[in-house]
Nucleic acid binder design. Structure first.
Lengths: 244, 244
DNA sequence: GCCGATTTGTCCGTATGTATC
DNA sequence: CGATACATACGGACAAATCGG
């Protein structure tokens, strides 16, 4: 599956940046040199470099070259963008995840649910509340809404493990796009009951709509995070394309 | 300046999506048709489509086509990624911005400042505190650190307007990359004094490091937002490139 | 200040692979 | 199976920015 040549080049360059083969602020070899190194076309090295740019590893400058702007200290966050399940990110950070299913029901979307989630009114849904632990601490409460037509046969047992694994490996539903909105909200009674909130009276809230490859939105999730363990990282670039 | 052909195609397609020429869930014309429409090469239309994908307007599926997944209701947020100044985003949302400079000093980075901001110890910096109003409401407190070598001649008067305008139009410093981290933090005395926090005891905090085209980090800013007016939007895609 | 070499940015055309219908 | 669609890859050409002599 991971066959594309530009991906291999991306990985190799990223590894070399992370391990210090190129120093911070140093220019990488020019595109022409990389063409020789990897025995490929210019487009292919440029795709790899482009991916490094969007990930914040390097920045390019016409007439100069490609500069390494990676700083290791910054790259230890709970999430780095992309789409990643709770379990995946926990494993990546070498933490021990656990999930408790607080509530598992089936509902039909009324106007209110429809307005909140974006599902059409009348949609048949699973509604779950799940509590996520990391290294024994309750950190996140998730409110999940799944479209029954797509996420067929969901059970409490599956929900205690990884729903995303079930989606990808059993149902072969591939997650393609996810639209997320981050806000800060007041704590609710449920939050207070299950999360150890200390002095905090608000949480970091991530609401997301997830689409499969057929363009069907099959999931709406509201993730409520304990503030002291929430961290979201992002690399922005002044785009050539003006957004105004 | 905005001459690139793929940018024009991007803009045209985006406009057509936003104005309903293509309906939600509808497939756009195929790449081959777009090649004829815009009289260009395949690579060029693909670059435009690729930009639409990263902006969450469409999603592609091999063998099927390019699907419009744009929903107008979702696209009204304070920031949509990218790098945008306070004034720019205010104007875009048709709001009236005002900025009050609470503090304007020059400092030399000690170990503590260096650790917090990422500037090397000994750097000569401007340090500012600025309060941003929108439609008369105090919403954001910014703590700005600017490298004096790059941001030469900064004054209180400039800081009351738009520092980014000064950077781009007067100093011709172009912002290229910005690394951001979003967290939720407890309110400080300063926050409480200047922002109308109501019941909230925490804020949304965006910390960012900004680089110019020479790869020099010339700005560190911590933006502290009143929770009820903070909203960050993001489109994630399951990348071909595995991050694990 | 100009010129030429280097480097990235844009664009074109073509070929092949793979997924969908 | 064939037609259509996107994904990957190659190679070449010229423009624009940078830098050193």
């Amino acid at each position: 599956m991971p066959k594309a040549k530009y991906v291999e080049i991306y990985k190799d360059l990223k590894m070399k940046i992370e391990t210090g083969t190129y120093e911070f602020q140093e220019l990488l070899p020019s595109e022409n040199q990389l063409i020789l190194t990897y025995d490929c076309s210019r487009n292919t090295v440029r795709r790899a470099i482009s991916a490094l740019v969007t990930d914040g590893y390097v920045q390019t400058a016409q007439g100069k070259g490609v500069r390494n702007i990676f700083r290791p200290a910054l790259r230890t966050s709970f999430t780095i963008g992309g789409i990643e399940s709770f379990k995946e990110s926990a494993v990546r950070n070498r933490q021990i995840p656990k999930t408790e299913v607080l509530c598992f029901t089936e509902i039909t979307a009324d106007q209110k649910v429809s307005g909140r989630t974006g599902f059409p009114a009348g949609s048949e849904l699973y509604y779950l509340q799940r509590l996520h632990y990391l290294d024994g601490k309750a950190l996140i409460i998730n409110h999940n809404y799944f479209l029954k037509d797509v996420v067929t046969g969901l059970t409490k047992e599956i929900a205690e493990n990884s729903i995303y694994e079930y989606l990808e490996h059993t149902l072969h539903v591939s997650i393609v796009t996810s639209k997320r909105v981050m806000t800060v909200e007041k704590m609710t009674e449920i939050d207070e009951k299950y999360l150890d909130m200390g002095d905090y009276n608000c949480l970091a809230v991530v609401s997301s709509q997830t689409y499969d490859k057929d363009g069907i939105m099959f999931e709406y999730t509201q993730s409520r995070h304990r503030p002291d363990y929430f961290r979201f990282q992002d690399n922005a670039t002044r785009r050539t394309i003006e957004k105004i």
